Computed example of a mutant assay.
Amino acid sequence: MTSPPPRLGPLTFTEVFDLPVTVDLRTAARALGICTQTAYRLIHRGVFPCPVLRVGGLFRVPTTPLMRTLGIEERPVYAVDLDAGMGAGQDDGA
């Protein structure tokens, strides 16, 4: 059985909040609504809209600055979190 092909459009709001601490350049480009090739051009010109880390031959983009660039300052609180006792500003104990 094969998995479905990856979604190529921009990331949804929910997908953005499920990102790990850093993302690859393709994911960051999707979040920004630009193609990967444009993202590489912006990096090489030094004008990518948020910090980019070079790890070996790969580019990684920290998620928090990426979210700020998208105008997202805080993580939302989902109803599931409230049911579990985790509200805004509370630690989940992890």
Rank of each mutant, 00 (worst) to 15 (best):
L42G: 02
R60S: 00
D83I: 15
R26V: 02
L42E: 01
L66F: 11
V23Y: 12
P51W: 13
P49Q: 09
G46I: 09
V80S: 14
I43F: 10
V47R: 07
G57H: 03
A79F: 10
T22Y: 06
V77Q: 07
T38V: 07
G57N: 04
V23F: 04
E15C: 06
D92F: 02
R45I: 09
T38E: 01
P65A: 14
Y40N: 02
F48T: 09
S3A: 14
D18S: 15
L82R: 15
L25G: 05
T36P: 00
P10R: 13
L19P: 09
V77T: 15
R26W: 00
M86G: 04
T14H: 15
C35D: 11
R30C: 04
M86L: 14
E73C: 08
I34A: 06
Q37W: 02
G93F: 01
A84Q: 13
L58W: 07
E74R: 09
R7E: 08
I72V: 13
A84I: 05
T2S: 12
P62T: 14
P10I: 02
L25T: 01
V21N: 11
V55A: 12
V47K: 01
I43G: 08
A28K: 03
L66R: 11
V55M: 08
C50N: 05
T63A: 13
P76L: 12
R75C: 01
G56R: 11
V52E: 04
V61K: 04
D92L: 07
A88P: 09
A94S: 14
V61M: 06
G56I: 05
P62I: 14
R54L: 08
T36R: 04
F13P: 06
P65H: 15
P4G: 02
P6L: 03
Q90E: 13
Q90P: 04
E15P: 09
V23G: 00
D81A: 03
T64S: 12
F48L: 00
I43L: 05
T27H: 03
F17S: 03
E73T: 13
P5Q: 11
T36W: 07
M86P: 06
S3P: 00
D91L: 14
T27W: 00
R41G: 01
Q37Y: 10
R60G: 01
G46R: 00
L25W: 02
D83H: 13
E15L: 11
G33W: 00
R7S: 08
A39H: 08
R30Y: 01
E15F: 10
P6W: 00
T38Y: 03
V16Q: 11
M67F: 09
T14M: 11
L19K: 06
D91T: 13
I43K: 05
A79W: 12
V21M: 13
L70P: 04
I72Q: 12
D24W: 03
P10A: 12
Y78N: 08
R26S: 02
Q37H: 01
L66G: 11
H44C: 02
P4S: 10
D81S: 12
L32V: 03
L11D: 08
D81V: 05
F59A: 02
T2W: 06
S3V: 09
P20T: 06
P6T: 06
I34N: 00
A29S: 09
A29P: 05
R75F: 05
S3R: 15
R30V: 03
D92P: 05
V47D: 09
G57Q: 02
E74M: 04
P4R: 14
V61E: 04
P10C: 00
R30E: 03
G87S: 13
L42S: 04
D91A: 13
E15S: 09
